[in-house]
Design a binder for these strands. Structure first.
Lengths: 331, 331
DNA sequence: TTGTAGGCGTTATCAC
DNA sequence: GTGATAACGCCTACAA
């Protein structure tokens, strides 16, 4: 590696003081244009880069954003986080920030990680993926005035902190409308147990759309934990009912995959629509609701940098993004 | 946030000098045990944490490891990187390191990122996932003496830098042996075009095992780009041959998924085995070769920290891990 | 508009 | 075994 290039090196090369170089970097407007250019040339020629550690020590800000990477849970949903992370890293990069990863097995340990991370690296912000009712993590961060944004709404009270989310109800509504357009009326829903914000939201999109079309949704839905086997079991149950649905909307691709097994031999064919547009969906030709993960990541960074920057911070900005129905063979 | 706790705070509290505190932290053996304990108590009581920025400024080392997060390529393989990343982050954490993410669209830009990252954050090391013959990135890093390890062998010369990899040939060999054990002899292989290290490696495991069993592999394999459609096409071609295989080993789950479509109506059933054990495989019941990704991540960190630490650095340590065949319905 | 001085928290060097 | 001092690279006053 060549000799370390500091602000002093640049100053000497450009024949100005260190302060002028710093000004060119941080407050270009206070420097005469001609000087600015000369300094900029020196910077480029020398390949100077701001030393973040030194800057951080002075400013107390690290330009680092932390995000948790979870163990691939069900396995099938791993790619969602994957795509989100990529978008986050990319967007953060263009905004001059970097993404740091951390892991934690549970909330208590996650909070301990916050403490560590904050103490050691002066992190600028956290991105939390998925929040639940009465989340201790957001409470902790809020209490300490640590900037953060969640990918996922705070279901108890949408105004308590900044968040970005995808409108799940709109997704299932799109799916339901698609099936209505195909001529179906008795459209079933395979969802998660009541009580999870995300699950209830997705269910509501289906229910409202059906009601709006004049269809009574009673007895047309079933709840179960996420999983392929679960989806198959519950879908079979729906299809065995006296008045079986002729098409199915599912709360996840896992459930939809199971449903697909259940309807395999059905005649006439029973269309199935999943949710999340995971690679599995693409692989098996499953029509599915696609979350705009890249855009979600972009908004997260925007909210964060908006908050972090000097712009007057609006109180708890939020962004609800619309998903998109990806049509494939199954519907 | 409470008042910032620095080494000076601790020193005052414990009634020693700052240097003694630093010694307790970094060279405990030079401090008298009694003093050490008193200082440690003060550290715990105050909740002191080393400020990495300050430490880094002094030592020039950041305790940060950078790893690239790729856009989910084919989509189906995203979960592989995902699991690897999680393991990496976790292991790095326990070793006192953190993982920083970066993205890059191509090699040139990736190298520019190295430059940026190194200049701005004094990164301690890089983890590269996937390398190709004549990789400019490893050359760049080597030339600058930047520590790194690749997840994936350098196919030209396995001794040029530290790496961790999974033995693909062993994986396909396991798969082939499984099919032999099921009584099959004419076992086909659906692979990638010749020339990619990974692909050739996986093909070789199949070929050698077949030869060892006294089967001539001629005309029993086909090459194609990765993809479900491609897999289906090529598998069909194999099955339409005058002497069709009675079972198939595939170089990836994508190809295997395609092959599965091709053999759907076959009678007697044609077993198919995939590679990577992606969630898709689990979803459709595809027997597949599972890479020990967590273990790979652990070894990466070990190689790195071994290199980074003060231990005598062995020249270019390497680790070739054995995959594991996960049996499901298709074989 | 530009230059000078001081300090952020840590560790290395060198006294004691 | 312990403590004072300097320096890492930068930024924010303040002075010129």
């Amino acid at each position: 590696m060549a000799q370390k290039v500091t602000i002093a090196t640049v100053a000497r090369q450009a024949g100005v003081s260190r302060q002028t170089v710093s000004n060119v970097l941080n407050s270009p407007h206070v420097v005469r244009e001609e000087t600015r250019q000369r300094v900029q040339e020196a910077i480029d020629a020398l390949g100077y880069r701001t030393n973040q550690a030194a800057r951080q020590m002075r400013t107390g800000r690290s330009r680092l954003i932390a995000v948790r990477i979870e163990p691939t849970r069900d396995g099938i949903n791993g790619s969602v986080l994957d795509r989100f992370l990529h978008g986050l890293s990319e967007t953060a990069g263009t905004a001059g920030y970097r993404v740091m990863l951390y892991t934690a097995a549970d909330d208590t340990r996650e909070i301990r990680e916050y403490d560590d991370l904050l103490g050691a690296y002066d992190l600028d912000a956290f991105v939390l993926t998925g929040t639940k009712r009465g989340d201790p993590r957001t409470a902790w961060l809020t209490a300490r005035d640590v900037p953060f944004v969640t990918f996922g709404r705070p279901w108890d009270d949408p105004t308590v902190h900044p968040w970005v989310d995808v409108d799940g109800a709109d997704g299932t509504a799109q799916a339901t409308r698609r099936l209505l357009a195909l001529g179906h009326r008795r459209i079933g829903f395979v969802g998660w147990p009541v009580g999870s914000g995300v699950g209830d939201d997705r269910r509501l999109g289906w229910e409202h759309t059906l009601r709006a079309a004049g269809v009574d949704p009673t007895d047309l839905d079933r709840q179960t934990e996420d999983g392929i086997g679960e989806g198959e079991r519950v879908a079979r149950d729906l299809l065995d009912a006296p008045q079986p649905p002729t098409a199915l909307v599912c709360a996840s691709d896992s459930l939809a995959l199971g449903a697909l097994q259940a309807v395999r031999a059905a005649d006439p064919a029973v269309p199935v629509i999943g949710f999340d547009d995971t690679p599995v969906a693409a692989a098996v030709g499953l029509t599915s609701v696609c979350q705009p993960l890249h855009q979600a990541a972009v908004r997260c960074v925007e909210l964060l940098t908006g908050r972090l920057g000097d712009t007057p911070r609006q109180t708890h900005p939020q962004a609800l993004l619309k998903p998109r129905l990806v049509l494939r063979q199954t519907a």
